Computed example of a mutant assay.
Amino acid sequence: MSLTRELANPHSPITRFLNAHLPGGAANDAYLKAARNLTRTIRPPEVRNVPWTTLGTAIDLRIRMWLGAQVHHGVKAGINHLRAPAGFVPATPGHAAKYTPHLNAAKAGEHLLQLLRRPGPRDPTPADEEHLARLAIVAARYEHIFRTAEIPLHHQRAVSHFTELRLGADPRYSLRRLTSEIPRTYAVDVCQQLDAAKKPLAALKGRPLTCGPLFAGSQDVGHAEGDFIAGGVLVDCKATITPAHYPRQSLAWLQQLAAYLLLDYPDHYRIHEVGLYLSRQGALISWPVPEFLSLLGARQSLPDLRRHLRVYLGTAFYRR
């Protein structure tokens, strides 16, 4: 069970704790006021069946790449799922015939990870940017396999629909085929969002970076993994065209940030600021931690909230 699914359940222990200790009304009002003042929205491609999840993950990955990330745990986990997908264990010739395409896709993914570990060009051309966007989209498709692992039907679809290409054993050629099948409109969309990110996130570039941070309390809610922390600033990326239309949704986003902050029980990441980055508006809405907690309605200090949450989740675990 992931933190997102736990927060969607009004009866889960983490939701009950946050509702009681950090109800968030003033924080949500502050976020909505800032979001409603944004005038720019990068529209997605005007095509049918836009892969919203894939493009949202892709821009998150592309921003991480731009910030200097070289390790992408979710992508690697998706590749590992392809390497040994459920039901495709090559114990017999028949199984091997079904398994080989997934193994070849996994080999292409390993080559992709090698490319992502290399520093990008210092002064990328538009062609370089489009190529990097295509790599990010393919990487997002691998990560989608990992993210759907707890939902069997979606996971099977993610594996079986990863690509319709008949990939060969050469990982370099296979990766070129995977990137070339990405519609150019999708790559341009990611490029536009990255370009919009460079100014609002400039202050984070060059700072110590942790991507996909796990927290001391992550296992207490099943799995909790943030987007990235740069120099003590915790950022969660949202690629939405309607950042201020759904107050319940934005409140859930703020509670997600609060959960990450509190689950860092020993203050390992020294988080001093938290924020939502709206990639289609090119805007970072953030607060220093004391102000964020005050807006959420906190009546206790951050160390006390962390300590009480740890005890509460531990007690809730034993009540299950």
Score class of each variant (00 low, 15 high):
P10G: 05
Y173M: 13
R177Y: 06
F162P: 08
D170G: 10
K107F: 01
E46H: 12
A133T: 01
A27P: 10
L194A: 03
D220F: 01
R207I: 00
R172I: 13
L135I: 00
R184F: 10
A136P: 12
H154G: 00
R176M: 14
A169G: 08
H154L: 15
Y142S: 00
E143N: 09
L55E: 01
R5N: 12
N80M: 12
H131S: 13
T4W: 09
T185R: 11
A298K: 04
L209R: 08
Q70K: 13
L302Y: 09
S286H: 14
H72G: 06
S180Q: 13
A239F: 00
Q219T: 12
P90A: 15
P121C: 13
P208C: 09
S2G: 04
R270K: 15
R40D: 03
W52D: 15
C237W: 01
L32K: 09
A30F: 11
H245P: 05
S218F: 06
L313P: 11
A84T: 11
L18N: 06
A8E: 11
T92W: 03
A20Q: 14
S174P: 07
T39C: 05
A8Q: 11
Y173Q: 15
E273I: 00
E273H: 07
R134C: 06
Y260M: 05
F146D: 15
H81M: 13
G206Y: 07
A20D: 15
A58P: 13
A127F: 06
Y265L: 11
R270L: 08
L295G: 00
L194T: 01
A224F: 01
E130C: 05
D60M: 01
G222K: 00
L103Q: 15
A127D: 14
D29H: 14
D189H: 15
S160N: 04
R320Y: 10
R64F: 02
P10N: 08
D128W: 11
L234M: 11
N28C: 15
V75N: 07
L18P: 02
I42A: 03
Y265S: 05
I42G: 00
Y246Q: 09
